[in-house]
Amino acid sequence: MLEIKGLSLALGEFSLADVNLTVRDGEYFIVLGPTGAGKTILLETIAGIYAPDTGSIALDGLDVTRTDPKDRGIGMVYQDYMLFPHLTVGENIGFGLKQRRDEPSLIAERVSETADLLGIGRLLGRTPGTLSGGEQQRAAIARALVLRPGVLLLDEPLSALDAVTRDRLRRELKAVHRATGTTVVHITHHFEDIFALADRVAVMQDGKVVQTGTPDEVFRKPATEFVAAFTGMENVFYGVSRVRDGEATIDLGAIVVRTVTAVEGDVCLGIRPEEVIVSREPFESSATNVFFGTVTEVQQNGIFSRVVVDVGLPFVAVLTRQSIARLGLAEGEPAYVTFKASAVHVFGR
């Protein structure tokens, strides 16, 4: 549906460098990355606001790299809504249709239909200044959707909202996507957006796409040290890998970790906190990595808590508060850390 090949663009402090992406028809595709990674520039280049220095953008097999933005069939929604304050919600939603000189009866029908889809049908006569942030964002999304774009681009659409509104709008976006089948490219900082909405994810770093895959693939099998750290793989260590018969031992100095990898020499390894088991006695399992140490930190964070066990290196684990109480885990108490060989992700350095 949307195919980007070799896209590069230098724009002041920001740039895109040889970006290659394919977004399938009807897919909800999320682009994740830190501030300055080039996410918004990528969206604006897809929309036609910027012309790339090199590379191409194709929609449904048609090259639109140099096509005027209004002729691309792409809708874009920014996080700050950009609604016209002097127009009603209904007039805002119908603005693009009016500019296109559609029949007034068709405009009214489309506006009503799209507003109802976003749950703001009752607000059509009001002005943006009288709406909550969530309502304004719904109106902005409706204004883009009413034109029935081939691709809908969402630039951090939930970032300016409070947690409760953000969660509600996530559910509504999922329902709208299911109802319309619109291809969506959504950029975000929030990991919750990915698991609630994304079919696939691309991670950007310094203007480049460094990994693409399903949410599970990206979070459980990061391709680089950067992706591991950025997606919350807190247990990141450096060592030397030696491989024999497909199995590897990685010397981290204080401990030696066993895993399966073909990467030898100086490496970085990562283990997600949720893959680490903490126990007071040796844990009975097939896991090959078991280390004894001392609890150095127990940080209560609502339902789940963060526990750090020093086994020569500090390992972070995530446990429920009930598990911590049942095990009697507290700072200074002895504990075992256990994790499977398959939980260890190895990256070359």
Rank of each mutant, 00 (worst) to 15 (best):
E281F: 14
R143I: 13
G121K: 11
R326K: 13
S279C: 09
L269Q: 13
V316F: 10
V218D: 09
E156W: 05
R321C: 07
K340T: 04
P282F: 11
S112R: 13
Q99H: 08
S305P: 02
R24N: 11
N301V: 15
V77I: 01
V337S: 14
V203L: 05
S279W: 11
G55P: 08
D102V: 15
F219Q: 04
A202C: 11
E281K: 12
V203Q: 08
V263R: 01
P157D: 02
I4F: 02
K98T: 10
V210L: 10
S159Y: 05
N301C: 15
P52Q: 02
I107V: 10
V278S: 14
D245N: 15
L16D: 07
S285K: 03
E247I: 13
E217D: 13
G36C: 04
N289Y: 04
R168W: 01
L269C: 06
H345A: 06
I49S: 09
R138A: 05
D71H: 04
A37D: 04
L161M: 12
A163M: 15
Q322H: 06
A108S: 13
V201L: 10
T188Y: 03
E103S: 11
G36K: 07
P222H: 01
P273D: 15
T249Y: 09
L147V: 10
I255M: 05
L313H: 10
I271E: 02
G26A: 10
S323P: 03
E156R: 00
K221Y: 12
P334K: 14
E333Y: 09
E247C: 03
G150E: 12
A335R: 14
V164W: 04
D199Y: 13
T188H: 00
V318P: 09
G125W: 00
A160F: 00
V227I: 07
G332W: 02
T259W: 00
A115P: 00
G207Q: 07
G119N: 12
S342V: 06
